[in-house]
Design a protein around this nucleic acid. Structure first.
Length: 436
DNA sequence: TCTGGGGTCCTAGGACCC
DNA sequence: TCTGGGGTCCTAGGACCC
């Protein structure tokens, strides 16, 4: 079943490309519903970070301290023990909302305080990242057993090249899509939606046509009927800014975009983006399904519960800063990467963001080096304003021990580095003195 | 009641080299 | 005294996506 997948079976008469986009339905919420099936059909919202009072078991223990809940049946926990959105205070946003919750107008990325006004009775649960990752791996490995050309697009989404998979052409991909959908449900207990189309662009839109637990098949001839009536915003790559600009020119649907002169689009939206807009409006996209990729950067950032001030809250800020550097270093080391561009990100109380970075002359995954360089970057920004977010990033990554390493100059003598780091230390001021 | 955290890619100016 | 292009790297910001 697995096997040759790269070359068309008949180069002179290639099979039509059939590309699938699959995404798991309300994934983070569905993961919680596996544990708490009694929440099925109720408005449930996932997000907000882990707070003690969110812990369902903690509430139970408090109510029945005499009982042992350690391996109790979670599905029997009564609803009154689940925390509600009502009364939420904090800066969290919704990661996922169940379909019943969406009927109240709440959805991904919405602030939880706003969601609490729209649907105060909704149950609020924090994300269980470990469980989400476990089920993510499970559904992806299930797909790979059936269709080996898969592109990872995050925890809950993938593209799959059906073209050369046995049965991938039957009914335009519907038969294979059904098999995958069924296999994923058997393996995980969670439903997904699949769109199959001639390319990634259309497949992505198609997977939304029939949610949840749906399949939709789109053919090249369906462009006018199924794609052109859609708002431009449905195109993956048209965000709020581009959409607003398009609307300003009276372009609301993909069909209206397709009707515009490509030359005018290029003049108005730039050579690259304008040409791309024209292509996508005509359903054209020849991007391959990419099965392997290397990370470009790794970062850690955090939004404070209240805005902090560099002087008044310097101890707290300094501790957070150091922790972020340690976390990035740990991520790099754990995954086997080192980088040579080190940077920071700040978000001020007015939500304006600034970044600063430096490129050093060697690759590093060392927390102290990252901390030192990031500290120098911090000195280059305005620290008189209140800060709501602080982040640390390492870019220009290499994987030590791979071939790219030598050409990229990963190797460097220990003595050289030590001497330079000492010199650098002398220039580091004592912004966050707890480090010294 | 403002708006998480982890990413990628693009643009644009300036430095620097040939 | 005035004046080239091309290429690459670095940095900052911003759009966009999951």
């Amino acid at each position: 079943m697995l096997g040759a997948v790269t070359a068309p079976a008949h180069p002179t008469d290639p099979l039509p490309r059939r590309i699938a986009h699959l995404d798991m339905d309300a994934f983070f919420a569905s993961v919680e519903l596996l544990r708490y099936p009694q929440l099925k059909g109720l408005p449930v919202v996932i997000g907000g970070g882990r707070r003690r009072e969110d812990d369902v078991l903690a509430r139970l223990r408090e109510a029945y301290p005499e009982r042992d809940w350690s391996d109790g049946d979670l599905s029997r926990i009564p609803l009154e023990f689940f925390p509600r959105l009502s009364g939420y205070t904090g800066r969290g946003v919704i990661t996922t909302a169940t379909y019943p919750a969406r009927q109240f107008g709440v959805g991904s990325a919405m602030g939880l305080m706003k969601a609490a006004k729209l649907c105060p009775q909704a149950i609020l649960l924090p994300v269980d990242f470990d469980e989400v990752r476990r089920i993510s791996r499970l559904f992806k490995s299930t797909i790979l057993e059936i269709a080996p050309v898969m592109e990872d697009r995050g925890v809950d989404e993938v593209y799959i090249d059906f073209t050369h998979v046995p049965g991938g052409q039957r009914e335009g991909g519907r038969v294979l899509a059904r098999l995958i959908q069924k296999s994923i449900f058997q393996a995980t207990g969670i439903t997904c939606s699949i769109g199959v189309a001639p390319n990634k662009l259309i497949a992505k839109m198609a997977s939304e046509f029939n949610k949840p637990n749906g399949i939709s098949i789109v053919w090249p001839d369906d462009l006018q009927e199924k794609i052109w009536p859609l708002p431009c915003r449905k195109v993956n790559g048209v965000g709020p800014k581009a959409d607003e600009k398009l609307q300003g020119y009276g372009i609301h649907t993909i069909g209206e975009l397709a009707a515009r002169d490509p030359g005018w689009l290029i003049e108005t939206f730039g050579k690259s983006y304008g040409a791309w807009l024209h292509a996508v409006s005509w359903g054209r996209d020849d991007r391959p399904v990419v099965t392997e990729s290397e990370p470009v950067s790794m970062s850690r950032e955090t939004t404070f519960e209240r805005d902090l001030h560099a002087v008044r809250d310097r101890a707290e800020l300094g501790a957070v800063f150091t922790r972020l550097c340690e976390q990035v270093a740990d991520d790099l080391q754990r995954k086997g990467y080192a980088g040579k561009t080190i940077g920071i990100k700040l978000r001020y109380d007015n939500f304006q963001s600034v970044t600063r970075d430096v490129t050093i002359d060697h690759f590093t995954a060392d927390a102290a080096t990252i901390r030192r360089q990031a500290g120098l970057c911090l000195k280059r920004v305005d620290l008189t304003r209140r800060i709501r977010l602080l982040g640390v990033r390492v870019g220009k990554l290499v994987k030590p021990g791979t071939e790219g390493e030598q050409a990229s100059g990963y190797s460097e003598s220990h003595s050289t580095r030590t001497a330079r780091d000492k010199a650098s230390d002398e220039h580091t001021d004592l912004l966050f003195p707890e480090l010294d």
